[in-house]
Amino acid sequence: MSVAAAGVPAWVDLGTSDLPGAIRFYGELFGWSAQPPDDPDAEGYTLFSKDDKLVAGAGSVSTGGQPPTWTTYIGTLDAQASAKLVESAGGTVLMPPFDVLDRGRAAVFTDPAGASFAVWQPLSMAGAELANVPGSLCWNELTTRDPEGAKEFYGTVFDWETRDTPFPPIMYTEWLVEQQPVAGMMPMVGDDWPADLPAHWMVYFAVNDCDATAEHAAALGGTVSVPPTDLPHGRFAVLNDPQGAFFSVIRIAGD
Rank of each mutant, 00 (worst) to 15 (best):
D146V: 07
T223A: 11
D51I: 10
G184A: 02
F109L: 02
Q66L: 13
A214R: 08
E28I: 11
A237F: 10
A237K: 04
F117M: 05
M125C: 02
R235Y: 05
P37Y: 06
S225Y: 14
A131R: 04
V8M: 01
P169W: 07
A128T: 12
D41L: 14
A115V: 06
D99E: 15
G135S: 01
L19M: 07
T71K: 07
P228H: 09
V8F: 00
A56V: 08
M125P: 01
G254L: 05
T143G: 00
F98V: 14
D241Q: 05
L101Q: 11
G64C: 04
I250V: 14
L14E: 03
M186P: 00
F167I: 12
A56M: 08
A128P: 03
A199F: 03
K50F: 14
P40V: 03
L220P: 05
H200C: 01
G221A: 09
T223Q: 06
D41G: 14
L137Q: 06
A212Y: 07
A131P: 06
D38T: 15
P36T: 12
A218S: 12
M171K: 10
V207I: 09
P97E: 09
A217F: 07
Y154N: 02
E87T: 14
L142T: 09
H216F: 11
A150Q: 00
P122I: 08
A4H: 14
D209H: 04
L54D: 10
F246G: 00
A218D: 05
W175K: 00
D164K: 11
P242Y: 08
T72M: 02
K50D: 06
S124Q: 13
D196Y: 08
M1K: 05
P40H: 08
D164F: 10
F158V: 02
A245R: 09
Y45W: 07
V207C: 08
P97H: 08
R163L: 11
L47E: 11
Q80M: 12
A4T: 15
F236G: 10
P227M: 06
G114A: 12
T69L: 12
V238F: 08
F236Y: 12
A206K: 07
G190A: 01
D52G: 09
T69I: 14
E141G: 05
M186Y: 09
Q80L: 12
P96D: 10
M186E: 02
F153C: 00
S49A: 15
M125A: 03
A214M: 03
V93D: 01
P67G: 08
D18T: 10
P20S: 02
G244T: 06
A79S: 13
V86W: 00
Y73V: 07
P36A: 00
L123H: 15
G65C: 07
I250M: 09
D255T: 11
S33R: 15
A106W: 08
K53N: 13
A219R: 11
P194G: 00
R24C: 01
D146Q: 13
L29H: 00
T143L: 07
A81V: 09
V177Q: 05
M125G: 04
A89H: 02
G190C: 09
L239Q: 03
A113I: 03
I252D: 03
V224Q: 02
N140L: 02
T144F: 03
N240L: 12
G31K: 03
Q180I: 14
A42R: 09
L197D: 11
G31D: 09
P168F: 15
K151C: 06
R105C: 04
A195F: 12
N208P: 10
G184K: 03
R163I: 02
T71N: 05
G114D: 02
G27S: 01
W11C: 01
R235F: 08
M185E: 01
